[in-house]
Design a protein around this nucleic acid. Structure first.
Lengths: 211, 211, 211, 211
DNA sequence: TATGAATGAGCGTTCATTCAT
DNA sequence: CATGAATGAACGCTCATTCAT
């Protein structure tokens, strides 16, 4: 294989990557404007100034586009969690910060959070290797914080870190769904701000694992 | 109005109710076979051996069918919670039993749990008065158990019962979604049974509120 | 044929007539509430507290119900025209009064006027003998007034009364349609009240036939 | 942007326009075969040998198809009126010619006249800017002829031109409806040709405004 | 006579995907 | 590589009419 060819190939790869990003950004815009339910290939194509058929050169189908955005969402969340995990010396605070990073992510990236949520409550979606890896990275990060906490003796020594990391994830998704879908309920029956509600959730969770 | 007429009327009411149940059962069957996303009026009608138009004699629209099933699901869950709340003298045990009643309900009424979940994570669905009442009954039951626990001093005195009832609900939904949608993940990364995972979730939650 | 039988038959006829009127009144109510386009057999049956099938015992189909109401509308209009034709000694005034009776009928019996109009602009509707007769009665009345006017020498002697009666009818329907469907247009481009517009129409028509 | 692209774009535009016309022609054919009431998207698509969905690439919805045909009808009528208004030096003759252009248009473009009529007797139809403009052009043309006639002193000086233009329009529509829907009536009760009937209508109208 | 449940064809509209160019 | 026109099945829903009781 000649060098030229390699270079040409690399350029092509870049172009392909660039195009994919273009499409994804268009899809995100549509997501913002219309929401997940109303997202159509036609709308994405229009937003991207591309023909509908063109999208199928870069993505196998609609689901793959959503999967790609979800992948980026997971990676963004990982970054946020990473930052949260390094914002304090106290592992318990790190955990608390991760919980709040989750909340902030929901507040500031509603579209992406929608997709994270979507991938957690819809059966039949294909989780690609990439997607799985991103998930595992998040889990691994949380586990590492939990392990540190255990080592420092600030949380229960018997706690199964891996297991609890998943519990964290599942409960966070559930609580944010509640906040998102039934905001009026919380306001009217609890007379409480969303944030206070989430705070109670976090406090309760941490209470449950503290020594 | 003569007795006869009353009886006739009552019979008609019964028949109408029976028919509605028939349709609902057909819908549940479709739900089982195809899942919520693929549930169409055409499919339900076919399953019920009825013309599509006939369904509209008994339900205003598709959403009303789902609402009806969801209503029954919520009432069934209430029964289960009620039973759980009376199965022990210890309020803490009652709470634990409620958590497990939730799990059992998911295991034995997957379709119904799907709908409960659906109504918690989809915006834009109309919660009728009946549906709201069913929801409130469940919440009220949980709150009463929490209050009893507080009075007996077995959980933290400062805990906001109403708030925690909602946290319970949101986290339960989230955890069950995780179990439902990602069973392989839990098996492979945790090497653990679903039930053990749920148990950890429950223990953690209760740990968080115990005195 | 025995007397009894005749009486029984007559009673039945009466009952049948009464029922028909019941249904027609219900239909008129529905017409008022929902308009001609949204009038459905189901709605009429409900309004009449009858089963849908029952309506078909008294009317062959939906069109026959509308035809019946139209018949009554035409007869009502005939009454109004009759009154108008007798409200003055001057045949020209009588004519003018007929024009205005038409307008008043539109104002106060919008539903009925709708149907009159409907029967004038929809092809394929069956005009029964009764309907035709009612039409002819109206025309005959107008013709008689025109003839009187001709005899008194207040309108052009060469005018074909029968012909002009139909011209009156057609133009009245057309003008009222314009008023009904494009009220904003008249207001905005003419800056004029509906009534003034109709007045101009009448004046112009009468100018055209006066000696 | 290069010339080529412009040309390509123009070609595309042309093709799109051509396709739209194709669909419109199919719709007109259906109109001819089945009438306005029975015109369905399915029928138009079939007539055009296209899938139903394809129509929606060219028109937002069914109403837009009808609006488009109506627009063309109005513009055709405008042309006819224009020609009529220039076919004589005498403004009164011009007016008469316009009346007859209206009749000829009905005779030779029954389908289009149907739609013109439809838009005048159906509430709830959206009059787009284009449609309104076409309407206004017609009205303006008529007004200009009326003004000329007034200036030349051949019609009553007090006549409100704008108002009478609308009266002309409303009465023409009404008379043509009568001719269209009740041809037998006119034949049998008047024993007269349609054309003679219309002539009487025109004469009467003109008599009403002449000095 | 009266019922009213049931029909079934019909409606306008949407949309992911394909394919000839 | 890119197009975008075309598809066609699917969707939720309406309604005049029928018919067994």
């Amino acid at each position: 294989m000649g060098k030229k060819r390699n270079i040409a190939k690399a350029v092509k790869e870049d172009e392909k990557f660039f195009r994919k990003q273009q499409i994804i950004q268009a899809a995100e815009l549509v997501l913002k404007k219309k929401g997940l339910n109303k997202l159509s290939i036609a709308a994405v194509a229009k937003e991207a100034n591309l023909a509908q058929g063109t999208l199928y050169l870069y993505f196998k189908n609609k689901e793959e586009i959503l999967a790609q955005i979800t992948l980026q969402a997971r990676n963004l969340l990982l970054s946020a969690f990473h930052k949260a995990a390094h914002s304090s010396a106290d592992p318990l605070e790190q955990l608390r910060n991760i919980y709040w990073a989750n909340f902030d992510f929901y507040i500031h990236h509603k579209i992406h959070y929608d997709l994270l949520s979507f991938y957690e409550n819809s059966s039949g979606l294909q989780e690609t290797d990439e997607l799985l890896e991103a998930s595992q990275n998040i889990t691994a990060l949380v586990i590492s914080v939990l392990d540190r906490a255990k080592n420092q003796g600030v949380i229960k020594p018997g706690l199964n870190a891996s297991q609890f990391a998943h519990i964290m994830w599942g409960t966070c998704i559930g609580i944010i769904q509640l906040i998102e879908v039934k905001p009026a309920l919380l306001q009217s029956t609890l007379g409480i701000e969303t944030k206070k509600f989430y705070e109670a959730f976090v406090n309760n969770a941490l209470e449950g694992i503290k020594v």
